[in-house]
Amino acid sequence: MAMESDMVQAEMVEASEFRELSNQYHIMGVPDTVINHGKGKMVGAAPEGQLLAEIMKALKN
């Protein structure tokens, strides 16, 4: 998605190296996708359609 839009940045975060950040977003299991710094969240695998729906939801928050 990041490739398709200049507005999107996608970052892989190694949770055990950055515990403070993981705690901040209450990461309990992985993978866990945090959208716009906590506006949205998707635990587990993120199939394209579902992730898209979560992003749309997060943008409305």
Partner: peptide, 20 residues
């Protein structure tokens, strides 16, 4: 569909995928 949505995106979206 995803490409259409992204093409019209006006706000920044930050995705952080936490992994181990």
């Amino acid at each position: 569909q995803t490409r259409d949505f992204l093409a019209g995106l006006k706000e920044p979206v930050m995705l952080q995928v936490f992994v181990t």
